[in-house]
């Protein structure tokens, strides 16, 4: 009952935050979403003159759109799987073992994010050119792997560190080998947080544009790269808008998945929260 007696004060700070967030995040999304389902929208009308799916039909009829969707999905799956295979054991080593240069190596994963990314990419592209990796699928996989390292090392390290050592020892005690302990105890315990890292990695790779464009174009064309070329080369806004909405789909599915698998604390715990 006490709660109802307290007079509710208007939370102006909250309202202002909500308004600003709406303006900068939701409003552009609504505009792009509206454009995607618009057949005719001419100045100065505030709402479109004609809604419709004309541009969806036209966009989805193009072979390059479908091939780029499949390319993007293949890339995102490959990069995430490789990243998990490489980074999770490494993260476990960082979390549980002490070796020379551990801290330096650990912080070196920040380096990829500490400098202007495009400069780094151009330098890598120079090396890839000599290795004949430019314009190849595996060239793009490599460059996108670099982008996932930070998430896939730092978050799982925190997750593994949060696993109670005694639980692992108790498993050894009842007869589990070190590998079995990792598989049956450590991984399930760290699971939700690691799922969060994998999700971030997948979505991040799916949207990654600069690396894919610089290393992959024109042979390897991902959905974001195709969208950029549409926006640059097409006077019709709707093509870009339809592709943007298409791009939202995986992150929307990922979010739904996240709500099921990842409890709210996992992301925070991953960052040491």
């Amino acid at each position: 009952m006490a709660a109802t007696i307290v007079t509710r004060k208007t939370d102006w700070t909250g309202i202002i935050f909500a308004a600003v967030l709406t303006l900068v995040i939701v409003f552009p999304l609504v505009v792009v979403g509206t454009w995607a389902f618009t057949n005719v929208w001419r100045y100065p009308s505030v709402i479109p003159q004609e809604f419709g799916l004309r541009f969806w039909n036209q966009t989805l009829a193009r072979a390059d759109v479908w091939s780029s969707i499949s390319m993007s999905l293949t890339l995102a799956f490959t990069v995430t799987a490789l990243s998990a295979a490489i980074c999770l054991p490494a993260a476990y080593a960082f979390a549980r073992m002490d070796f020379p240069g551990r801290n330096l190596l650990f912080f070196s994963f920040l380096a990829g994010h500490a400098f202007p990314k495009f400069g780094l990419l151009v330098a890598i592209a120079g090396i890839f050119l000599q290795l004949n990796l430019i314009g190849t699928f595996w060239g793009v996989v490599l460059i996108q792997l670099v982008g996932t390292l930070l998430f896939m090392i730092w978050i799982p390290v925190a997750a593994f560190q949060a696993v109670d050592r005694r639980m692992e020892e108790a498993a050894r005690d009842v007869g589990a080998s070190p590998f079995r302990v990792f598989w049956s105890i450590t991984l399930p315990q760290a699971g939700p947080t690691i799922a969060a890292a994998i999700l971030l990695s997948f979505v991040g790779t799916f949207y990654e544009t600069e690396g894919a464009w610089l290393i992959g174009a024109p042979q390897v064309r991902t959905l974001p790269v195709l969208m950029i070329s549409f926006i640059n080369n097409q006077p019709v806004i709707q093509y870009g808008a339809v592709l943007s909405v298409l791009l939202w789909v995986p992150s929307f599915i990922a979010l739904l998945f996240a709500r099921k698998v990842v409890n709210s604390g996992s992301f925070a715990r991953g960052f040491g929260g």
Binding site: D164, R166, M167, E169, A170, A171, I185, Q189
Partner: peptide, 8 residues
């Protein structure tokens, strides 16, 4: 163990 260390 003191902390039980049960697998949750």
């Amino acid at each position: 163990f003191q902390s039980h260390a049960l697998w949750t």
